[in-house]
Simulated scan of single mutants.
Amino acid sequence: MENDGVPNGPAAPAPTQGTPVVREQDRLMPIANVIRIMRRALPAHAKISDDAKEAIQECVSEFISFVTGEANERCRMQHRKTVNAEDIVWALNRLGFDDYVVPLSVFLHRMRDPEAGTGGAAAGDSRAVTSAPPRAAPPVIHAVPLQAQRPMYAPPAPVQVQNQMQRPV
């Protein structure tokens, strides 16, 4: 049958009450949004392959799930049912994404400050954003010594080639 490999297709087993059906479009961020963000970050003449679009879509969706899951866990521990912006900021800090905490806090403050003039849906909300939450220990990702780690965006260090004919004096 041609739909044998398609999840939730005609050949898929019927879902039971214990197993919710999760469609791919419900699991992933919409590809149009991913493409729009990618195009803003690249030069106008750049081409993006379909594989690159899908890879970034998977990564973005996983990142969002990762951060939201941590924020949701905090809410569960505090017996709350609603994840709010402070929970997301807290989760980013706890997961080691420290570079995002301050810019996101500034953005939230601007969105909530009616005097800022940039307003939005939350412009009437006058709550102030507090300072960044206390830093948690970053998760151990891999066993590379700290001084050997480089940010992904940094160019590789220049390689110095020593002339074999030269002898030390």
Rank of each mutant, 00 (worst) to 15 (best):
E2N: 12
P10D: 15
Q17E: 15
Q17M: 10
G18K: 10
V21I: 10
V22H: 08
V22A: 01
E24W: 06
Q25K: 13
R27Q: 08
R27H: 04
L28A: 04
I31L: 11
A32C: 07
R36S: 11
M38P: 00
R40S: 12
A41N: 01
A41G: 06
L42S: 13
L42H: 06
K47N: 02
A52D: 01
K53W: 03
T68F: 04
G69N: 13
G69T: 15
N72W: 00
R80G: 11
R80A: 08
T82N: 12
E86W: 03
D87Q: 06
W90T: 06
A91Q: 00
R94M: 01
D98M: 09
Y100D: 01
V102E: 10
L104S: 03
S105D: 00
F107Q: 01
F107T: 01
H109S: 05
M111I: 10
R112T: 09
D113L: 02
A116L: 03
G117H: 14
T118R: 05
T118Q: 07
A121Y: 10
A122V: 15
R127L: 05
R127Q: 05
S131Q: 07
P134N: 05
R135Y: 11
A136Y: 04
A137N: 06
I141A: 06
H142Q: 07
V144N: 09
L146F: 10
L146K: 14
L146N: 13
Q147N: 12
R150E: 10
P151E: 02
Y153C: 14
Y153F: 15
A154T: 14
P156I: 11
P156H: 14
A157Q: 08
P158M: 08
P158A: 08
Q160H: 13
N163Y: 06
